[in-house]
Amino acid sequence: MNADIIIHVESLTKKFGDFVAVDNISFDVRKGEIFGFLGANGAGKTTAIRMLSGLLQPSGGKASVMGYDVYTQSEKIKAGIGYMSQRFSLYDDLTVIENMKFYGGIYGLSKNDLNHKIQEVIGILKIDEFKNQLVKSLPLGWKQKLAFSISILHNPALVFLDEPTGGVDPVTRREFWELIMNSAHQGTTIFVTTHYMDEAEYCNTVSIMVDGRIDAMNTPQELKKQFNSQDIHSIFVNLARQSTRKEFE
């Protein structure tokens, strides 16, 4: 296997009873890239991310993350990745600093490193005035940026972001992506799901999921050429129309 590959997936499948949530997907993610996972609600993005981050046992296929097997070495994977779930994952009744201390602590950061990191995040996000306030008093955009900063507090080589910009206004989304790209520049591999098609342009590789399958995967430029289209949005709409899966069936 190529040393540049950080995630290797081959025919990965997840079934819940008769329902095939993820259907035989294969792809590679290179070190340091931003890998975008696009798809409508219910396409299987979250299920795929949960299998790769060691939260969910696959039903079939092969997958390795940072060289560790998802079936048998999920503990090692967990220690090396960052994870930001699609639901808001900070504690509302704790302060900004307390949230950072807690999450940094469970990833085993030493007191010195942690304090250093906390100062760094406060500087980058410019939240010095909020640092001792309860998280619930922050606007949603700040919360999401903070959640992202916390998910990479322990300098993981790879971070999974599951719809990190859901419900956030366009300006904050822009700022959020600056944070992501900044972190990618420093060498962190980003695996991100989204259903905002404009965000696909930020990614090095885009894969489009429909009904649990990956129907298209390439760089944004190549995808546009391949489908002879102006933007990712229309490619996505064309592919998603073929979906036979209704969300609540």
Binding site: K78, Y83, S85, R87, F88, Y91, Y103, I106
Partner: peptide
């Protein structure tokens, strides 16, 4: 219920 359990389970804890 809040969803924080998911993040905790994804951690090495």
């Amino acid at each position: 219920e809040l969803g924080t359990m998911e993040v905790l389970l994804a951690s090495p804890l």
